[in-house]
């Protein structure tokens, strides 16, 4: 009986020791809130709370002690979410080639170039990207083609430009393509020539009210100048001539400026529409998912 009790006590002691040691280790780990594990957990919490700047600090502190590609990716993503696209690009570049996140990192680098509106570099990087030979090459080509609509790059023939896109997107992309090939710009030279008849250049630039005003003012001052010259009232005549000349030259300059404004407005709206279209489709690239999303 005594021996039986002794054995039981020994087993209980061992079990308790195991539990106590594991608790002890856990407590020790928990008590050091600056341990890598705890900094990582805190960094993840900050990331999910959208406090990206502080999350970067925590992730960086952990990375100093041991390399982790997921953390490097999160640092880059944090910069991207803070709209610091150039810094994000640099951070995505640090992902090693052998990393499982390398492919996504390559996509993200291109996304950063698009978001920072560095379209020419984006096109060059897509052309030399090793992903172009993978099965997902169409993601890259869609993004590259779309960026061409926003840059001065020469567009490929329409059929080869459109075939990459989804059926639903094709009609809109075709619309953008046509616009890019034949933008509805107005000619400043034509406006200047039309301004020989005061106001006509402004009417051409869709500023009808200004055109009519310009016509009336220039006409009236010219009439007064002529009238004064006929009556030999030299000083008044020259004064009105100066006014007429001022309004006439203003009419030509104003017409050219109005056309330039009109064209800038058209370009701005077009670029905006394309950007909204591309961003709504996440730049045609696969997007990473995080646990807190």
């Amino acid at each position: 009986m005594k021996r039986y009790l002794k054995v039981n006590l020994l087993i209980l002691s061992i079990l308790f020791s195991i539990v106590a040691i594991s608790q002890l280790l856990a407590q020790t780990e928990k008590s050091n809130i600056f341990s890598d594990k705890n900094r990582l957990a805190f960094g993840n919490y900050l990331f999910c709370e959208h406090d990206y700047l502080r999350a970067v600090d925590e992730f960086s502190a952990v990375l100093k002690n041991s390399w982790n590609d997921t953390l490097q990716f999160k640092i880059a993503e944090s910069y991207a979410r803070m709209q610091q696209f150039n810094q994000a690009y640099t951070e995505f570049q640090k992902l090693e080639e052998k990393s499982a996140l390398n492919t996504q990192g390559e996509y993200e680098k291109l996304r950063m170039l698009f978001k920072s509106e560095n379209y020419s570099r984006l096109q060059k990087e897509v052309e030399k990207s090793k992903l172009i030979s993978s099965n997902n090459y169409f993601h890259l080509l869609r993004l590259m083609n779309s960026s061409m609509l926003l840059s001065n790059a020469q567009l490929p023939p329409k059929s080869s430009f459109l075939y990459l896109y989804e059926e639903d997107d094709k009609s809109k992309i075709a619309e953008f393509y046509n616009w890019k090939q034949n933008p509805p710009y107005k000619s400043p030279t034509k406006a200047a020539i039309m301004s020989i008849i005061p106001g006509l250049g402004k009417i051409y630039a869709n500023e009808i009210g200004d055109g009519i005003t310009s016509f009336i003012l220039t006409g009236l001052f010219t009439y007064l100048a002529v009238n004064k010259f006929e009556k030999q009232q030299q000083s008044s005549a020259w004064l009105y001539t100066a006014f007429a000349a001022f309004f006439y030259s203003g009419n030509i300059y104003g017409s050219v400026a109005a056309v330039q404004n009109y064209n800038a407005g058209i370009k701005f709206n077009f670029d905006n529409e394309i950007k909204v279209f591309i961003n709504e489709r996440n730049q045609f690239l696969p997007t990473p998912k995080f646990l807190c999303e």
Binding site: S17, A20, L24
Partner: peptide, 16 residues
Amino acid sequence: ILYILIILFGASCINQ
């Protein structure tokens, strides 16, 4: 050993 473990466990709780 058991006593030591109990003391250490208590100490780590206080430490935290």
